[in-house]
Structure formats: C-alpha cells, structure tokens
Design a protein around this nucleic acid. Structure first.
Length: 113
DNA sequence: AACTTCTCTCGTCATCGCCG
DNA sequence: CGGCGATGACGAGAGAAGTT
C-alpha cells in the first residue's frame, strides 16, 4: 500500500449558516489533472496491452474514488458544522424564552398579590 | 529525551442506490 | 443489468499530548 506525501490541507470549509446540501449529488466533474485518457479499447490486442489497460482502469478508479472520498468528507464536515451552529442558535433561543417566561411569571405573581 | 497513547486525516475496499 | 458516484468501515501514518 503506497503512501503519498500529502500536504496538510486544513479545514477550508466555513459554516454557511444554512443547512448544507449533504445528500445532494454533485454534478459530474471533469477528469482530475494527471489522468491519461486511454487509447480506444478496440486497438488493444496482446496480453500485455490488456494488462496495461486493466491497470490503467484500476488506477483511474482509485483516483476517482480518492476524490469522491475527499468530497464526501468535506460535505460531511460542513454538515456537522452547520448542525453545531444550529444547536448554538437554538440553545440561545431557548435561553431567551426561558428568561421571558420567568419575567412573565414574576409579573403575574406581583399582580396577583 | 524517549516512549506510549490519543486524535486526525487519508486512501482503499465493499456496498448501496440511482440512472441509462 | 452494468456502470458509477456516494458513503461507511477499516487500517496506516503523522503529529500532539501525556507519561516515565
């Protein structure tokens, strides 16, 4: 299993405040850079050529899945961040409502006396 | 300082569901 | 039904944090 040297990407996703499109399918993307387009399959004959083609297909699949996994993780992170923001907002709202209720109760009690 | 443990990130595989 | 993208699960590597 090969390990490539990878730069630390950091978290480039900022919370948007809105709920993200976590489940929405991304539009088809163009091929990532570095991908070599194969010769047409019809032009392949020898076992070696077939093996090379199989290897190329596997590498292409791995590359695409690598990208897909990155995108999937990015979206998931964004989704979680948005949920956390929402929790914060709702907690604040809840606190305000509790204060308001308390104030109204006090007012009502003093009137009753 | 050397080590262990924890945490994060990544790539890969297996699987699922959708689309043509 | 086959191909393909999305995603959960898993293991590996790197760096941070804790321990001796």
């Amino acid at each position: 299993m090969q390990k490539t040297i990878m730069a630390v990407t950091g978290d480039e996703t900022a919370a948007t405040g809105d709920m993200p499109t976590y489940q929405i399918r991304a539009p088809p993307t163009s091929l990532p850079q570095g991908v070599v387009v194969a010769a047409s399959p019809g032009s392949l004959h020898s076992p070696q050529q077939l093996a090379e083609e199989a290897t190329r297909k596997r590498e292409l699949r791995l590359m695409k899945n690598r990208e897909a996994a990155r995108e999937c993780r990015r979206k998931k992170k964004e989704y979680v961040t948005c949920l956390e923001n929402r929790v914060a907002v709702l907690e604040k709202q809840n606190k305000t409502l509790i204060e308001e209720l308390k104030a109204l109760k006090d007012l009502y009690c003093h009137k009753a006396e």
